[in-house]
């Protein structure tokens, strides 16, 4: 199922992840799932709480962040659609570490940030059997 995001939201994510470079940054994606696409309606930056010395290649959020944003999504009739994070100076391809910590039915937007400049955003989803991520079509729209 394609993932749809408008240009402005994508630009906000790029800006956030350029600011966190050379460390990893990330946040949640709130949105809607319809028959033909998962549409991102909002992106919410969340602090990286991984040990500071490891943040150049690791990202983590607290369970309390999940709780807070999931409650907000449920209250607003949205879905906690997925999360975004950066791979500083590294391709926007999920690592084994990403897979070990992933859930199915969740959109993973990964952005490659090279030397402080966002290069490429790719969308991924974990297979139900947890064996690998599959690439999803990312539609960047102007609305």
């Amino acid at each position: 199922m394609p993932v749809r995001i408008n240009q402005d939201l994508q630009a906000r994510i790029f800006h956030h992840l350029e600011q966190t470079w050379p460390n990893e940054g990330g946040g949640f994606l709130l949105g809607e799932v319809s028959q033909d696409a998962a549409t991102v309606r909002e992106c919410i930056a969340v602090e990286n709480v991984f040990e500071a010395a490891e943040q150049y290649h690791r990202y983590a959020m607290t369970p309390q962040d999940w709780m807070r944003l999931e409650d907000e999504a449920d209250r607003r009739g949205l879905t906690l659609l997925g999360y975004y994070h950066s791979h500083p100076d590294s391709p926007a391809i999920p690592s084994d570490y990403d897979r070990e910590h992933a859930l199915p039915n969740f959109v993973y937007l990964i952005t490659e940030v090279q030397a402080g400049a966002a290069q490429e955003m790719l969308a991924w989803r974990l297979r139900t059997d947890r064996s690998r991520f599959d690439s999803e079509t990312l539609e960047v729209v102007c609305d």
Binding site: Y59, M61, H87, P88, Y97, D98, H101, Y108
Partner: peptide
């Protein structure tokens, strides 16, 4: 509640 974590290879 899942812990969200990720990182490059």
């Amino acid at each position: 509640i899942p812990s969200i974590a990720g990182g490059r290879a």
